[in-house]
């Protein structure tokens, strides 16, 4: 992905749409979207999205970059792939949403820092990178406390019962996580993947 996407001068300026077609993973296939609504209708949390993928794609064509990259739709995708398997035009909706989310991060949109899913993703990434695995307790804590200490304690208290039940059934551990074998190598792999992604999207 190139550093920045162009800012449209006006609505239905194709600058942004063309950039998305060319730079976002699966964007070229998004061009064939016929606005049938299968994706938004298939989404298990479609009613918790401000626009849903179908409308979001139309907004991309309409050059509504600001609204697209600040939308919660790109963050709320749970990667169930219902939309991808059903889309009659075979648009890889999930990839596109995730890549748009990455773009929002890259371009520094405030929503990319504050959106629940963005914060959760960061906590997840932190754990995965550090130990090579996700640790339920630490990821949750990091996520809870990402909006401030007071907020974190409040959320923790509210979910105390669930946490205790998870500990009891050994779904969550109070000890520190064990690192996977070869954590160093894993970290190197992830770094390389990141590098390839950057390069790949620069047209190489």
């Amino acid at each position: 992905m190139t550093a920045t996407s162009p800012t449209p001068r006006k609505k239905y300026d194709l600058n942004f749409a063309r950039w998305v077609y060319e730079n976002v993973d699966g964007g070229d296939r998004m061009a064939k979207c016929m606005q049938c609504g299968t994706c938004s209708g298939s989404c298990p949390i479609g009613d918790q999205m401000d626009y849903g993928p179908r409308k979001l794609f139309m907004m991309i064509r309409a050059g509504m970059k600001e609204a697209v990259l600040t939308s919660n739709t790109i963050w709320n995708c749970v990667s169930c792939y219902n939309c991808v398997v059903r889309c009659p035009r075979q648009v890889p909706v999930t990839y596109i949403l995730h890549d748009l989310a990455a773009l929002a991060v890259k371009e520094g949109y405030a929503e990319a820092k504050t959106a629940d899913n963005a914060r959760f993703a960061k906590a997840f990434w932190w754990s995965a990178q550090k130990w090579g695995r996700t640790d339920e307790r630490l990821v949750t804590m990091k996520y809870y406390f990402s909006t401030g200490i007071g907020d974190g304690i409040k959320k923790g208290m509210a979910n105390q019962k669930i946490a205790m039940a998870m500990v009891k059934t050994k779904r969550m551990h109070l000890t520190m996580p064990h690192k996977v074998k070869g954590t160093k190598e894993l970290q190197a792999i992830l770094a390389k993947a990141h590098e390839i992604e950057e390069r790949g999207n620069n047209g190489q």
Partner: peptide, 13 residues
């Protein structure tokens, strides 16, 4: 009157 976005959209330029 863009039916799919649900608002009036001017095509300019």
């Amino acid at each position: 009157d863009d039916a799919l976005i649900g608002e009036e959209v001017p095509l300019e330029g």
